[in-house]
Simulated scan of single mutants.
Amino acid sequence: MYNNSAKYSQMIKTEALRLGFMACGIAKAEFLAEEAPRLENWLKGNRHGEMTYMENHFDKRLNPTLLVDDAKSVVSLTLNYFTEDKQLDISAPKISKYAYGADYHTVIKEKLQELLAFIKDNIGEVSGRCFVDSAPVMDKAWAQKSGLGWRGKNSNLISKDAGSFFFLAELIIDLELEYDTPFAADHCGSCTRCIDACPTDAIMAPYVVDGSKCISYLTIELKNEIPNEFKHKMENWAFGCDICQDVCPWNRFATPHQEPAFKPALELLQLNKTELIEMTDEVFKQVFKGSAVKRTKFTGLKRNIDFLISTKR
Rank of each mutant, 00 (worst) to 15 (best):
E114S: 13
L115K: 07
L115W: 15
L115T: 12
L115Y: 14
L116N: 09
F118H: 01
F118Y: 11
F118A: 04
I119G: 01
I119S: 04
I119K: 00
K120A: 10
K120N: 06
I123L: 03
I123N: 01
G124S: 03
G124P: 05
E125T: 01
V126D: 02
S127R: 15
G128Y: 05
R129V: 11
R129D: 14
R129M: 05
C130G: 04
F131P: 01
D133N: 13
S134K: 08
A135N: 06
V137F: 14
V137P: 07
K140T: 15
W142K: 08
Q144E: 13
K145E: 15
S146H: 12
S146F: 10
L148D: 08
W150I: 04
R151I: 12
R151S: 01
R151Y: 00
G152W: 02
N154E: 11
S155I: 09
N156Y: 12
N156S: 14
L157E: 11
I158D: 00
D161T: 14
D161P: 00
S164N: 13
S164Q: 11
F166N: 10
F166A: 07
F166E: 09
F167T: 09
L168H: 07
E170S: 07
E170G: 06
L171W: 13
L171V: 06
L171P: 03
I172E: 10
I172D: 01
I173D: 00
I173K: 01
D174I: 01
E176N: 00
E176K: 00
L177G: 06
Y179R: 10
T181K: 01
P182A: 04
A185Y: 07
H187T: 08
H187K: 06
C191V: 03
C191L: 05
T192P: 00
I195V: 05
D196T: 02
D196S: 08
A197G: 05
A197H: 06
